[in-house]
Amino acid sequence: MTDVLVLGGTGWLSGRIATRWADAGAAVTCLARGGREAPYGTTLVVGDREREDAYDQVARRDWDEVVDVSSSPAHVEAALEALGERARHWTYISTVSVYASSDDTGADESAELLAPAPPGEEEDYGRAKARAEASVRSALGFRAAVVRPGLIVGPGDPTDRFGYWVGRFALAAGAEVLTPDGRGRGAQVIDVDDLADFVQAIGQERWTGVANAVGDPIDLDALLAEARRVAGHTGSVVPAADAWLEEHDVAYWMGPRSLPLWLPVGMPGFWTRANAAYRLLGGRFRPLRDTLERTLADERERGLERERRAGLAREDELALLHELQS
């Protein structure tokens, strides 16, 4: 039997990865702080990665596969020190945010990376992941796979980014929805379940190397149009210019009072990364409509009018629409 250790295993992505391994017949252990249940068929070991004894219960045995999703370089480095010699294969989930430039379309895994974050600057997400990647490669060499996802989407997304649009169109029904100017903008999304399948598959094969886990590029307007169709929205779509949105304190990409997935002009590389390696390794992409339908069902269950981590509150959106059109 394959022995798998998932560092995490109770979160959104890591929980799905643990589930895939359990479904494949592996003996799966999840190392997490507790407070949330581990997936059915797995074993939870409670350990706080901020503590020196975090790995004591799992460092006395060998592992066929270790999976780490952490964004903390210190956590990654401590795990490598405690478990590196015990692991036959290691999969680290990084991000396309490690790339130094977003200017070039179609860039592949050989593109220049950001300088790794020095200690004390770990709050910079891209550089923190770059430092963690460097630690994995240095410690494990040809025993490691590094997966660089783009925008991970689907039901259960804790960031609230992708689900904002299909949820907002459903909430608005026959009323207006504010959107950014989509010209020259786009997105690359990967369904969380497709990503989990891929991570389990390359771990099973003990593949080593680096792969961008990103979907095919899609124009932002086309993505929003599909979200609108899935939601059954019959109202008007009201686009606003970048300058106007910036003047009214609407943020790009994510976070409170934002229009999710909207990027500044001049970042074509961010949403056109090459995904040939992912495809060659057997990675799959389910239809966008399927992901949107599953996401909408999840949005309805969680509440279309709930307070969100990303997007505009409906009240704020209506105020902005009124001002834009007055």
Score class of each variant (00 low, 15 high):
Ala32Gly: 02
Ala213Phe: 00
Trp165Pro: 00
Leu83Thr: 02
Asp216Cys: 01
Ala251Asn: 10
Arg168Leu: 08
Ala175Gly: 11
Gly174Trp: 01
Asp219Leu: 12
Leu7Thr: 05
Phe285Pro: 00
Val210Thr: 12
Gly163Glu: 11
Ala130Leu: 11
Asp197His: 05
Gly150Trp: 03
Glu323Ala: 13
Ala173Ser: 10
Gln200Cys: 11
Pro149Leu: 07
Ala172Phe: 04
Ala274Ile: 01
Asp64Met: 02
Thr295Lys: 13
Trp63Arg: 00
Thr19Gly: 08
Val192Thr: 03
Gly156Ser: 10
Asp194Ile: 02
Asp316Ser: 09
His75Thr: 10
Ile152Thr: 09
Ala26Gln: 09
Arg229His: 05
Val67Asp: 05
Thr295Val: 13
Glu109Val: 12
Gly106Cys: 07
Thr234Glu: 09
Leu288Cys: 05
Val265Gln: 14
Asp181Cys: 04
Gly215Cys: 06
Asp64Ile: 01
Ala319Lys: 07
Gly9Phe: 08
Phe162Ser: 12
Ala54Pro: 01
Pro260Gln: 10
Ser138Ala: 15
Arg279Leu: 09
Glu50Lys: 09
Gly184Asp: 06
Pro118Gly: 05
Glu299Gly: 15
Ser236Leu: 04
Arg286Leu: 14
Arg279Asp: 03
Arg279Phe: 01
Asp249Phe: 11
Pro158Glu: 13
Ala22Val: 06
Asp53Asn: 12
Gly269Asp: 08
Pro180Phe: 07
Ala117Tyr: 06
Tyr40Asn: 10
Arg229Glu: 11
Thr179His: 04
Asp68Val: 11
Pro217Gln: 03
Pro39Ser: 06
Ala240Cys: 08
Leu288Trp: 02
Glu301Pro: 11
Ala240His: 08
Asn212Ser: 07
Leu321Glu: 02
Glu299Asn: 13
Ala144His: 07
Ala117Thr: 04
Arg131Ser: 14
Pro39His: 09
Leu223Phe: 05
Phe270His: 12
Ala243Val: 11
Glu301Trp: 14
Arg51Val: 02
Ile202Asn: 14
Gly120Val: 06
Leu151His: 11
Ala274Trp: 05
Ala117Gln: 05
Gly311Leu: 12
Arg306Gly: 14
Leu178Gly: 01
